[in-house]
Design a protein around this nucleic acid. Sequence first.
DNA 1: AATGATCTTGACTGAATGGTCAAGTCTGCT
DNA 2: AGCAGACTTGACCATTCAGTCAAGATCATT
Lengths: 205, 205
Amino acid sequence: MTTRIQKRNRKLILDAALEVFSAQGFRGATLDQIAVEAGLSKPNLLYYFDSKEAIHKALLGELLTTWLDPLKAIDPSGDPRAEIMAYMRRKLQMSREYPRESRLFANEILQGAPRMSAFIATELKALVDGFAALIRRWSAEGRLAPVDPHHLIFSIWALTQHYADFDAQIRLIRDGADPLEGAEAHLEMLFARLLAPAQVTPPVG
Amino acid sequence: MTTRIQKRNRKLILDAALEVFSAQGFRGATLDQIAVEAGLSKPNLLYYFDSKEAIHKALLGELLTTWLDPLKAIDPSGDPRAEIMAYMRRKLQMSREYPRESRLFANEILQGAPRMSAFIATELKALVDGFAALIRRWSAEGRLAPVDPHHLIFSIWALTQHYADFDAQIRLIRDGADPLEGAEAHLEMLFARLLAPAQVTPPVG
DNA sequence: AATGATCTTGACTGAATGGTCAAGTCTGCT
DNA sequence: AGCAGACTTGACCATTCAGTCAAGATCATT
């Protein structure tokens, strides 16, 4: 049974841990930092979680479902281009709403996905395979310009997550302006053109 | 004066450090790991570099010029679309040839660019501003479809670096296949379409 | 071969850090 | 109020890790 206090403190800890792990990576984060951020003592963290590793694991576990949702929401019976655009928009929205989660993920992959390879190789891969099959079907039916499904989804991931993961760089280059300003319009155009039916490109005027 | 031995050992150390830092991040890497990787003793590393920090700094310093070269190579007097495509190709080539450098960079930015903000805010920003001005000029001259210069360059960075930075994920999803297989063709098409003159998109057949 | 400079390292130190524990405080229930 | 279980923490421990040092090995030069 979980008490009221347990619920509150677990949430405090996971939120603090997200803040610290996403900014410093697993090894860079310390329990003391997380404790301060959570407003609890270090031994108290370890009363709720067995170890630093356990906190990190719990965090990733929470994240994974959130991460898969946009992909699951693609409707195979919908309009191909509209569905892909909507997926891209959802992913961009996640960069806006959950940048820390995106960076937590990026940190993990960058370091070879040591704590996530099982998830990627099974659940995520299965979803991506399903997506790839759907794209191929749509293309075969002539409802979508032929496109490599894997590279299509990597493009969506790369372009949307970049705004969260490289936030620091973008801010420095754009004088602190909101990195996502104009991003949606840009990506709308980019994907609209990528997914448009093949056509003869007129020569440059 | 630098001796033969100094030259050799500094190179050994920097190469080992690149391997370790790019895979573990700054805090995750240890001098012992780097020493083993370099085939030298830990005190010996510290004979050649003042500190762990100094090794990392030297590494970044080396990397920075390499990193800017492709951008500097854009020829303002060349054909707009050809120049941008060539830049994208050079960046993709760097993901192929220097994936560790890309990950070192990504690690640094992810953690808020603590050791690189000066470089980004000055040198890199200046080059990007120059690029942006060039893109706007080309568009104003009607030689290039109007496109947000910043988001254009972010798109190039995101799409090319993704293959190095998220290598682990891509391999798991594609059953260990070379992540870059098919990437060039895909990005060629994507950017060709993005940069094509505006035109009426026919309705879906 | 001699010698001074360069290079190398085993053995250490101090600080940081993940984790423990026993002793206390608070909470909810009767 | 009183009690059992839940919660909290100061003090502590063991390990890891960046960095030091003094003594010895190697190298270049004559």
